[in-house]
Every structure is written in C-alpha cells, then in structure tokens.
Design a protein around this nucleic acid. Structure first.
Lengths: 149, 149
DNA sequence: CATTGATCTGAAAATCATTCCCATCTAGCG
DNA sequence: CGCTAGATGGGAATGATTTTCAGATCAATG
C-alpha cells in the first residue's frame, strides 16, 4: 500500500477524454462505496469544494454504466442509483431500506438460474436485474417487521 | 349490450369504494394482459370512449399494486409498468426488449434463494425484484445478439 | 325515498429526476 | 503555440408521477 502516486484511473480512458471534472466525479463515486444517486454525488462534490455541473455528473455516471464500470438500480422513488464496479463481474446486494447499508450476497445461484432460463427460452442477450431489500438487524431486523406498504 | 348488470370485480373491494371509473380501469387493465404503463392505459381508455382522468388511473393502479393485485417493473426510461396478477403469488417474467412479449419463467429457485438470503443475513422483511430481459426468437433471438450497452 | 358525510374524481398546478441546448472552454495532437 | 473535436455548465425543457381542492358520487341510514 505504498501508492504515493495518484492513480490515473484507467476508467476515464474508457469513457472519452480525461478532464478534471471526470477525475473528481470518479474519485467521489469510488469513495462513495455503495449506491449513490447523481443528485447526491453532485451535492457531495459541491460540499467537498469541488463543484461539478449536474449535467457532467449525469454524463459521467451514464458513461461509466455504459462502459460496464457501474451497476445501476432504481430506488422506489424512481431515482437511478449507481454503484462503482471495479471488476468485470457484477454482484447483487441486499439493501437495507432504512439505512441504505448494502450487503453483498452470493449470487451464483441466480447467475446459473438466469443462464438456464436463457437456454430454455430461446431468448438472446438475456440480462437480469435483481434487487433485494429488507431491514437490517441494526435497524430493527430482529423485530418482526411488518409488511407495510 | 344485454348485460344490464355490470360485474362487480372483487378486486375493487380491496382498494376502496366501487365506482364506474375503477370498473373501467380495472377491466382495461385486465384486458391489456401484459405490462402496461399508466399513460398507455389512460390513452387506451380515451380511445375506447370511456375516458378516465389520468390521476384516477394512477390511483387505481397504485392501489392495486399496494393490494398485491398488480406486479410492477420499471422500463428503461423510468416509466412504471403494471401487470395484472390474478392470484396471490407473484411471478417473474422474461421480457423481450424489442416487442414487449413477456414469457413467464419458473421462479421457484429464486424464491428459495431469496428466502435463504433472508435467513442468513438476519435482515427482516426481505423482498425481491427480478427483471429478466432479452430478445425473443421472433425478434432475432436466433442471431448472435451482441452484448452491447 | 331523502339525507348526509366520507370518499372519489379530474383538471390543472406542482414536483422531481433527467435530458437537452448552446455558448464557452480545454485536452491533446501537430 | 495554435487548432479543433470533445467537454462543460447552467438554465430551460421534458415527461412521468403526485398533489390540490372544489365539485360529483357512493352507500349507509333516517
């Protein structure tokens, strides 16, 4: 863990020209370490004293997702949440609806299942999105949470 | 036009008072037989000569979903698509991104997997959303569809 | 059958995330 | 250093969904 030198994210090369704004957005995105919305990231950047235009945040996140370096889900309000993905494989998470804590889960069964479906159905280019939500132990998971809403 | 008496769908009782508008919306919703957006349903109703306010369509669909009689997904544009669910159990579908064809899939493995996750994680009230998309055989599923985007 | 209060409806206005527009900048190359 | 395709930003535009609220309806009751 000696890396004194600032890494020049290879990610940026994937999405076009290397600019200051993109560096800053990417750094904050990685630092966020979990699902973040474009609006939240934009606000965070402003708070950090490195304001970047909202359009630019959207553009950057959208491109990262397009390049496969970000996972994308929708929260219940319809907002798009992005999560940085370092490697090529994607993962699935169990997200706490109370505090936002995300808990990675073993998704091998899902991958296999989805692959099987793809085979059997004759569909091509099958993709899947899996969202698991719940209430984590800290937020009252122990207590019998009702199934409201 | 013999049926002087209109059938009184039991679904309506689940979501409140029985009104003409709700009957009409529900009938069209069931007739749609697949995923529909509130806007599309609203337009369909107008075309059918039984216009209903957009707010009412939204309210009815939202309540049906809340009562567990409708499944809900988001299309890539962020629009909410509802699908009538006759029974109490929910299902998962493989949806063609080209023509919208929906193909029910065996979701037992997913249910089991999700239940297992709920157990192991300690989270309560775990819910899951699974979306499978692909290109059906009729729309070119045979051809090696690339994995763009 | 008339009354009545709770519920529902709908048109328009309000929200809100996201995208578009476009004048202005800037990386990166020659 | 000078050029130019690509990038930025902020404000306006879009589009789905929600809210508002006055008037219409429902359904239980007198």
């Amino acid at each position: 863990m000696a890396p004194t030198r600032q890494r020049t994210p290879t990610e940026i090369a994937l999405i076009g020209r290397h600019t200051q704004q993109r560096s800053v957005v990417l750094a904050a995105f990685i630092r966020a370490d979990g699902f973040v919305g474009a609006q939240a990231l934009h606000a965070q950047l402003a708070a950090d004293g490195t304001p970047v235009g909202l359009s630019t945040v959207y553009r950057t996140l959208t491109r990262l997702a397009g390049a496969g370096r970000a996972d994308l889900v929708r929260d219940t309000g319809g907002e798009r949440l992005f999560r940085y993905r370092p490697g090529p494989d994607h993962r699935h998470y169990l997200i706490c609806t109370e505090c936002g804590l995300s808990h990675p889960v073993d998704s091998a069964p899902i991958e296999d299942w989805a692959d099987g479906i793809a085979q059997d159905s004759g569909f091509a280019n099958v993709r899947h999105t899996v969202e698991l939500t719940g209430v984590c132990p800290d937020c009252g998971g122990g207590q019998a949470a009702t199934e409201r809403q």
